[in-house]
Every structure is written in structure tokens, then in C-alpha cells.
């Protein structure tokens, strides 16, 4: 069963549009030069609304993981058990993303391992960002 399909809104549409082009972008505050994700109307740190979209390196590391075995989400239950990891972005480790670590056997996750962004189709014309181990 496919993963759940994100529904972009006004704020998130640039992010998902970029993901559909296989690019990973996040907001950058022009006021204090801080990256933030998910997108907000204003900078989390300085409150500036002077924000821009910035392409990331697409590189990260595995910070922690759990194994989902009894999810509330009906559409994910056929996939159980599955890894659910938190990935920190190398550009700024305070920025994080979720990942199911495609290709990594359940529970065989190495904390601290390097990963890179990849993209996965969840619906026609809709990709989501994923992360795979760096060879």
C-alpha cells in the first residue's frame, strides 16, 4: 500500500513542487540566515517575514529510529513493521525529516549513518522526500 499522500497548502506548495522535481528545499531567513523546516510564515528565531527558499545539499545523518508495529494510520498498517527514522540535515542539523529508510532491513538501522535524499512516488504526480544510505 502506498504511503499517505501529502496535500500541499499555500505555504507548503513550493516545497512539494520542488520535491516533485526531485529537489529538496527549505526556507532560509534572510534576516538571520537560519534554515527552517517545515515552512512558516515567519522566521522561528528572529520573527522576520523575509524568507526565501534555498536548495539543500540533500545530505543528512540518521539521528534516531523506532520500528512502527501498530500504527494508528490505516494506510500504513500493511507495511508494518517498518523503520521510522529521524534524519538531521547536514546543512543545519537542527532541521530534521522523517524517513522509512528504504532498503534498510527492519531494526537494522545504524545511528549516525550518512544518508542522502531520494524521492518516492506516492500518487501520480506526487513524490515525497525519502532518505537512503550513502554507499
Amino acid at each position: 500500500m502506498p504511503k499517505l499522500i501529502p496535500v500541499p497548502d499555500e505555504l507548503s506548495k513550493p516545497f512539494w513542487d520542488a520535491v516533485n522535481e526531485k529537489r529538496l528545499i527549505v526556507q532560509n531567513c534572510r534576516g538571520c540566515n537560519t534554515l527552517q523546516h517545515p515552512p512558516r510564515e515567519a522566521c522561528r528565531d528572529c520573527g522576520s517575514e523575509n524568507l526565501e527558499w534555498k536548495e539543500t545539499s540533500g545530505r543528512g545523518h540518521i539521528s534516531a529510529f523506532v520500528v512502527m508495529m501498530d500504527s494508528h494510520l490505516e494506510y500504513r498498517t500493511p507495511d508494518q513493521p517498518f523503520n521510522l527514522a529521524l534524519i538531521t540535515l547536514d546543512d543545519d542539523p537542527r532541521v530534521n525529516f522523517f524517513s522509512n529508510l528504504p532498503g534498510v532491513p527492519v531494526r537494522e538501522v545504524q545511528i549516525g549513518a550518512a544518508v542522502e535524499a531520494t524521492f518516492e512516488e506516492v500518487a501520480p504526480d506526487q513524490l515525497i522526500n525519502e532518505w537512503k544510505l550513502v554507499d
Partner: peptide, 24 residues
């Protein structure tokens, strides 16, 4: 929303990967 195929609002950043707030 737990039975939905779609993730809206804040859930668009979590639910596609099965990261449900209650489960976590």
C-alpha cells in the same frame, strides 16, 4: 484522518512516513 489516504496541515510533514503523533 487516521483512516485517510491523505495528509493535510501539520500532518503532511509526519503521516506520509507513518509518524503519527499518538503512536510516537
Amino acid at each position: 484522518e487516521s483512516a485517510s489516504a491523505y495528509s493535510r496541515g501539520d500532518n503532511q510533514w509526519n503521516n506520509p512516513w507513518g509518524a503519527n503523533n499518538i503512536d510516537l
